[in-house]
Simulated scan of single mutants.
Amino acid sequence: MEVRVGTVEEVRRAGCRIVEIGGRDVGVISVGEEFFAIGDKCPHQGASMCAGSLSGTMVASAPHEYVYGQDDRVIRCPWHGWEFDLETGRSLLEPQRSGLRTYPVTTDDGHVVVHA
């Protein structure tokens, strides 16, 4: 199934647009030139992930060295701060136990398309 979300410009301007796919809310998020689609409900208590914030996180590095990375690739739940990798949907804290569903996104003739 393919769902047209809106024009590239509309989705970029909105930052995050929620669409319904198969009875589920899906957040389509614009980051720079890329688009990501994730299940919009946090697995913890169901908050809308599109109401959360995008940021980065500290990444693996040498002892006593602090390196910030994944800028605008981490989405944070607005209620309790649970963090998820925007690309994979996996939880940063418990990647084997928790995550958000992700969907492939393409552009076609100036429109953003989610594939479910």
Rank of each mutant, 00 (worst) to 15 (best):
L54A: 08
F36E: 07
D109W: 07
Y103T: 09
V105W: 01
D108T: 13
C16M: 02
F36W: 11
E33V: 09
G56R: 04
G46V: 12
S30Q: 02
G56Q: 06
A60D: 15
T57R: 07
G46T: 10
D85G: 12
G110A: 08
A14R: 06
G23W: 03
V11Y: 00
S91C: 15
V112N: 03
G69F: 02
G32H: 03
M58L: 12
P78C: 05
V105T: 05
V74Y: 03
V5D: 02
I21M: 11
V26A: 07
P78Q: 04
R4A: 15
G6Y: 05
S91L: 09
G81K: 02
S98F: 14
E9S: 15
L54N: 07
F36H: 10
S48T: 00
V28D: 03
G69S: 02
L54D: 07
P78N: 04
T102A: 15
S48M: 01
E34Q: 15
I21V: 14
Y66G: 12
G52A: 00
E83Q: 11
H64D: 13
C50G: 03
V3F: 09
M1K: 10
I75A: 02
L93H: 15
V67C: 01
D85R: 08
G32L: 05
Y103S: 10
L86I: 13
H44S: 08
R17M: 01
D85M: 12
L100K: 06
D71W: 13
C50W: 01
R12A: 10
G6L: 05
R12E: 12
S53C: 06
R73M: 10
W82T: 00
G15W: 06
E94G: 07
I18T: 07
T102C: 13
Y68L: 09
C16S: 06
P43D: 08
D71I: 14
M58A: 13
R76G: 00
V11C: 00
D109P: 10
H111K: 14
S91G: 11
Y103W: 10
C16K: 01
S53V: 07
V8R: 00
Q45K: 03
S55W: 04
